[in-house]
Design a protein around this nucleic acid. Structure first.
Lengths: 151, 151
DNA sequence: GCTTGACCTTCCCACCTTGGGAAGGCGCAC
DNA sequence: GTGCGCCTTCCCAAGGTGGGAAGGTCAAGC
């Protein structure tokens, strides 16, 4: 298989495959006499693994660690689980950050008329000296309701 | 005020302030005879606006648009609201993506023993040919419960 | 007046992942 | 043997941030 074939098969662009090789995530591919990269079924499996890991949001470093464990028949599943749950924790932290931003914006937008007039609590808040997130105290406010009110 | 003072006052590093000036987000600061940048209270306000917008996850381009509206006394609040809600939509899309990743990982991790043995459904899934997210059909599954089960 | 230390200036490099594109070499079908 | 699609390497770009070098400036203290 040439790089184009394996790119189609894995959904990773040829460019990225070369990049992963350059940066050491995957091992250098075999070459034909004329210099073309050639891939085996084994390589295909590896790249599929990379693809799936990437889809789950793992960093290249984490994928590297996972690949190492994957190839290590004497691995402990605890090590894999630790990476996975550590990553989940990071994902949740990010989600929380995004949610805080979103909540603040929805709160501000819900007070904005959204008409031809210039008065706008969103701009007012951004330009003020107060801390950026004067959120309502209510807990578990349903995001969708807030969003509807904001529209 | 020198750049260091305004950096402290806004929480934006001097480096980033110069970068924002270079890229045209903010207008070039006045200079002393010796070339030091000098900032007015007006500049301070602008940079605070930038800081807050950044904290809310707006891109530089969006902050640019918001700044323009901020300075335009004849703006329509609808334009501001549109930017804000558009950004909220993007934030929610990202959150959903992160949530899908997190859910998949929690599901896989909940089936992983996490011990000294090598058997690991996480690796098995990453290395398989199946689509990456074989999620349970149950809806509204509480994330925290899934997380506890995964541990 | 001179030294010192904190600050300022510009300029270059790096991160990470991805895409775009140029210039040139191969492989194969007609 | 010509043409087209693929391959090769190499450079550039993004966004947003940090690091650091080399050199100029300011103010305080002696």
């Amino acid at each position: 298989m040439n790089i184009g074939d394996i790119a189609k098969a894995t959904g990773i662009t040829a460019k990225m495959i070369r990049y992963y090789e350059d940066t050491g995530l995957i091992r250098p591919a075999m070459r034909t006499l004329s210099g073309y990269r050639v891939y085996s079924d084994n390589d295909l499996q590896t790249l599929r693994f990379v693809r799936r890991s990437r889809d789950l949001g793992f960093t290249v470093k984490q994928i590297d660690d996972l690949l190492t464990l994957w190839r290590d028949r004497s691995r402990a599943s605890a090590d894999v689980k630790e990476i996975a749950l550590g990553h989940v924790a990071m994902l949740e932290k990010k989600m929380q950050e995004l949610k805080d931003m979103s909540d603040t914006l929805l709160h501000l937008a819900s007070h904005c008329q959204g008409n031809d007039r210039p008065d706008c609590p969103i701009l007012k808040n951004l330009g003020s000296t107060e801390p950026v997130a004067p959120l309502p105290k209510t807990r578990d406010r349903r995001k969708t309701r807030a969003f509807d009110r904001a529209r």
